[in-house]
Design a protein around this nucleic acid. Sequence first.
RNA 1: GCCCCCAUCGUCUAGCGGCCUAGGACACCGGCCUUUCAAGCCGGCAGCACGGAUUCGAAUUCCGUUGGGGGCACCA
Length: 514
Amino acid sequence: MTDAVVRFAPSPTGYLHLGSARTGLYNYIYARQHGGTLILRIEDTDPSRSTDEAIAQILSSLKEMGIDWDEGPGVPGPHGPYRQTERADIYREYVDRLLASGHLYPCFCTAEELEAERQAAQAEKRNWVYSGKCRRLGADEVERRRAAGEPRTLRFKVPPGKTVFDDMIREPVEVDNDLIGDFIVQRSDGTIVYNLAVVVDDVTMDVTHVIRGDDHISNTPKQILIYEALGAPVPKFLHMPLLFGTDRKKLSKRHGATKLEQLTAQGLLVEVVRSYLCFLSTEFDESMITWTLEDLTRDFDVERLSPSPSIFDPDKLRWMNGRFIRQMGDEKLGERLVAYLTRVGFYGDPAAVEKAAAEGPQALAAAVESAETAHQPATAPTAEQAKLTKVVAPLVREKVDVLADFIPMAGFFFRPLAFTDEARQRLAGTDGAAATLARAAAGLRAVEPWSVESIEALVRGLPARLELKPKAVFAALRLGMSGQSVTPGLFESLWALGRDEAAARLEQAATLAG
RNA sequence: GCCCCCAUCGUCUAGCGGCCUAGGACACCGGCCUUUCAAGCCGGCAGCACGGAUUCGAAUUCCGUUGGGGGCACCA
């Protein structure tokens, strides 16, 4: 099959929600896998809730994930335009067609009347469907009320019977048409209602496969009825499970992150988020963590998605990210760290960002987000900072899950030595700290060559010489070098600091300990 | 209230009538390794929502129930 046409149709009422991102991804994968076409359509029929800024944001999120489209904003094609607000003429034409074929009828019921009907149904604990009152209006009465200028909507005549449709990952769904009730397709102000707009769009865009969230399942019968009224072929449907938080509620801000940018601000890598989103609701093994977009389009089968809800598990994402980082090359990791640290403002004020990061990646991401919405430019690293980051990168690879973990772990490389009260106490409580620090500093000043190996030899010889336990020596040096008790490897860290800096720090700490 | 979807460890899942005293992964717990913290390796805890039915045999099929979710708009 080479003629699959799929579409991704976000509504630009805000940023791209992770759930939508996933829908976009699956559409992309499906299109690429089947040599088909991906159309990006903007569902902005509600202009009051849609903004150009939101559109721009959504496009940029998609691009960040590597998703591109064959037709849509910025990519003209035979099925344009791609914003619903620009398609009013097309809708009008189809409304006329349906009107002419007798599938639509005018309804003069007011919102108040309908509300009253609804209330009555509610009171009797009946399911409410529109009574079809106006469907039975005589032609002359319709003409009279129309001439009198009464506002009217257009309703779709739902035929009797059942509507059945298949789903690529679910059991077939069957709905009794009586339960649907004649629904409005055109508002009294002449604008078109969603269900009609989608179908007209999908029909005119030759869409063959509709991949969307399962919250659309209950709309589907209505839409199928419209396809049938239009005499258009019904596409295949795939309703994917919704993305939930750990409390089994739709993923929302309470769960921490709802958009890609928040995740990346925490130091998650886009490609890992992408894999996670894909493999959630499927079985995967570790080797798939590093799958590229190309791998996904070749080997990922959208149809093996499980239909049950997907719960977003931040722990698993972190773990995947850690695995990914561990297999990255030095250079790659260094580059990603530089880019990330730049974004979070680390190079402008390391100490401040370190402080923010101390509360965890989420808090840091929140700070980053507010800085970004305020359009504060990030400070680029100096050549020295960039170089240092790349030198330190390999030292932290085994110890970080997300890039943000770099900051509390290795921030000390980038600013003057500082001690918290706790660190001071710890240093004071370490046996022979002053002697260890002084001795090590002197040793470092003289050791040749300046290499990890010779530093290791020097340090390892210290416990015997000072008649101290190895643990005490290591603890004193670690603390003296960084002010922290958790750091990357000691020898490597001393080496990365450089001879003068390392020795100077230990000397400074020695006076403190003494 | 009505309609629809979903249902295996806390979470993501394997399983598609016998290979299941239900397998893997995250998380959690313990051990090993070790200069800290991790990583890595090894081990452990933990599940077929419930009740009927079909069958020689059911996690797997059918029917109920329960639970969770979604929808019932002149929202998308």
